[in-house]
Write a protein that binds this DNA or RNA. Structure first.
Lengths: 129, 129
DNA sequence: GGTTGCCTTGACGCCGGTGTCAATGCCTAA
DNA sequence: TTAGGCATTGACACCGGCGTCAAGGCAACC
């Protein structure tokens, strides 16, 4: 399978596949031409990469999942290194959700404040009741 | 007040202040030197910018808040344009929290799956009970 | 042999806020 | 006069996952 076909089948671009290869995530043999020749199994790998990227992982984080797949597992998530990454990401996401929740509170408070201010009869001068 | 002093007082860098000016957020007169000369009120503006940036707003979003401050309001949040931005940001944050919550679910599920897989007695072969 | 289409490597662009370096000018104190 | 500290503008670097263009080689069909 040449790079164009893999790109089409994986729903991505040749540029992207070369980028993954450059970062050691996807493997290719070379024809006498110099053309990349892909095993069918690489399609699975590319799909794994795409879904993990879509989930917010970075390429570095994805490395162990690919290794896990190559080791013959039916899923890339079951290996110890993958689980470590999953745990770490879960913690990150939790932290992020916490931050955003706090931020949400602040935004609500500021909005309410602004609305209250607008309804106040003395918003053009200092209020001294 | 010269740029160095304002930077120190605002807890940021001269580079940053010039960047804000370049984007029309901070104002400065010029000495005969060419040196920037800042009003005291700009300190307030810079603080507003910094806190909004820290909250995740972009410079474009911050513009109306600064305008609101310059219009003489005691807070940058009370003007209609600012409120629009606040509402939009609140919606964005809500959406983001939703996405992250979904992602969290997926991560948990995958972790649980991986753990279950590890505890399974047949993780090196196909299970056919 | 010419056209079309796929392949190759290399390199710049983007986004956004800032660090950092360069080359140069102004001000002040010793 | 000179040193050193602050000012100026301009421009590159970063991060990360690509898009996109350039310049060229290879394959296959007319």
């Amino acid at each position: 399978m040449l790079i164009g076909e893999l790109a089409t089948r994986a729903g991505t671009s040749t540029r992207t596949l070369r980028y993954y290869e450059q970062h050691g995530l996807v493997r290719a043999e070379r024809d006498a031409n110099g053309y990349r020749q892909y095993e069918d199994a690489e399609l699975r790998v590319v799909h794994e990469i795409r879904s993990l990227l879509a989930a917010g992982f970075g390429l570095e984080d994805i490395r162990p999942f690919v290794a896990c797949l190559r080791a013959g597992n039916e899923s890339g998530h079951v290996c110890p290194d993958s689980v470590l990454v999953l745990r770490r990401k879960l913690a990150e996401v939790d932290g992020f959700i916490g931050q955003l929740t706090d931020l949400r509170q602040q935004l609500r408070a500021q909005l309410d404040e602004a609305v209250a201010h607008r309804e106040s009869p003395c918003h053009t001068q200092t209020c001294q009741p």
